[in-house]
Design a binder for these strands. Structure first.
Lengths: 193, 193, 193, 193
DNA sequence: CATGAATGAGAGTTCATTCAT
DNA sequence: CATGAATGAACTCTCATTCAT
């Protein structure tokens, strides 16, 4: 009973995590179902009990990683602290999450830049962005941030985090505390009043 | 013969541009050689007289588009004008180039985020970044820009351009003159002293 | 227990009828066990408590439908009536049975024309044909029918019924009473003295 | 040039004939592409240069065999000879064609009784039946045949030929000249005035 | 007896690459 | 250099069957 349910969950998770790892290592192609099956420790056919198709695995993975990212982002984000401090906290939350989960980051970037992504997935973006959009909107209303389209502000901020993560993960420039501080400060100066 | 050479160049260009278009439309996969051949108006085997493999086409395409981008970036960048004006000019050059050549932009982003890219291509990056790196370094030495690792500054600036282009091309937020101005100003405030 | 046995019979019947329906709709392929199970309202494994294999289901179905056909054929076939009238009655019995049970007809035709059928099933044919063969043999002996090999006579007669049913079920020519009458008469004229 | 064209035709023909043989031997399933390729002496991929899909091979085969059948049927069918003689000739033409080409016969029967066949293929039937329909219609107008729907007459006649061929090919009753004569006579009596 | 998740061989199809012309 | 038919390994996905529960 319990065991069975756990086993089922385990296999589904194994398939998802194996797919994530393979795509991160080799790209969307070079992640054939046969290899996913082998590395996940299941038979090829078993995958199709949990997912309808390869595309569905990838979409499920996208939703999962987006959710994880959303949760990580909002950590330690109580009402306490100044607006600026909260801004710094959010930035660092996201950065830390990606640095600690490089596969997740690389997958999301690959997905975002592939012509897979359509209107459908954009909706999920909206769902995730909601608290952030609110936070940015609030900052503008209260006069902490300069007035511009929220989409633009979000894109610039998120883009800076992404840039910093890429720099770090690619090995081009390891982001120590000082550099992270500089990057956050730069982002803040870019949008603050 | 001049004619023959031109024909050869034409075919090579046709193959490259067709590949660019197909990858942009359908992603790295769904750009099979057979379709490239058909759309480029050449036989399948002919491609292999001009390129050793499919990977080589993509690499050649990457070099080509990086070069075009470099040339566009440095346009109208004489010594005249203040440092800030030149900064603004560079930013806009890059933005305009990408908006006018969306296929080029989408290809470069896809390429950059695929695990294809290795050490080899990083070298070419350096070659392209050289004038920019000099310009940024100069800004720091002269006190226009705050001191930080040049790689970080470049990543933040380039990242902002990319964010703005994506916003525009995806249709999420069309970048009119005012918004472009806001974006450049934000980037400038992020790195200026 | 009576109840249990009924339940068992129900499941067996459900499996058989579902298989019949699926094969008729989609052909021998596109009638996968998983779909049979789902539509019959049983688990995949349950089927294997009632049948050894998929082939066995089909063979059981063949025997079942042949039996039903045999029973329908001999209806209202008392000794009363002239030989010719009985002949007409048999023809119409068969025709009506097939028109009322199109799935049965289509299945039998598909089965008969597939290389599945071997010597084994031919034996069952003999068992079913027996009363008919007797009737035809009697007709020849009594001088109602012309002398020819009984197998040939049976084949021609049965073939005519099949032709009429196909015409009707395919929609090419709906068989009203007049047309049925013409078809029977034609068959009769083909074999009568 | 000539050689190339011949080779192309040869491969296409080899694929068609191998498919015909395999389907006849094993049924529509159990004729996998891999086996077709092997037995036809070509690579798996080569098949797809000549046909878009497996279904297309089967459709092409159907059209081909229908055409052959049509040609065989009309042989030796000059205006000379009485109507009855021509009728006998046509019957025998068809019978002989099928007996000499059992694979063709078995394939056509399998195809006709599979749910593959749709409206599309019915059109081709019409195209083939045209001369026959004319001939039957003429016989009715001239008073040689009894009046009934032409579709019915054609179905009964064709059905009788099919019955005789099946009897012969299945081994149930080898059709010698005498039996063929009896079968034709029976068909004639079924529809003649 | 019933279940249904798991199996894995094999299905149809694709595609980068080759080579005789 | 150009051609495009041919290749065959590799791909995604299916399905009859099994077995632990």
């Amino acid at each position: 009973m319990k065991k069975k349910q756990t086993a089922e969950t385990d296999k589904k998770q194994a398939i998802l995590q194996t797919t994530l790892a393979l795509i991160t290592e080799n790209g969307f192609h070079n992640a054939p179902m046969s290899v996913i099956a082998k590395r996940a420790g299941v038979a090829a056919g078993t995958i199709y009990h949990h997912f309808e198709s390869k595309e569905q695995i990838i979409n499920a993975l996208y939703a999962l990683e987006k959710e994880k990212m959303g949760l990580a982002l909002l950590q330690k984000a109580g009402q306490d602290g100044t607006y600026k401090n909260q801004f710094f906290q959010f930035w660092e939350n996201l950065f830390t999450h990606f640095v600690k989960n490089p596969a997740s980051f690389l997958f999301l970037e690959q997905f975002a830049n592939s012509p897979f992504i359509g209107q459908v997935t954009r909706e999920e973006n909206k769902h995730f962005y909601l608290p952030v959009i609110e936070f940015i909107g609030l900052g503008m209303k209260k006069g902490f941030l300069r007035k511009m389209d929220i989409e633009l502000a979000v894109a610039l901020i998120y883009g800076n985090v992404v840039s910093a993560v890429k720099l770090h993960l690619s090995g081009e420039l390891k982001m120590n505390n000082k550099r992270v501080e500089q990057a956050i400060q730069a982002t803040w100066d870019a949008v603050r009043k």
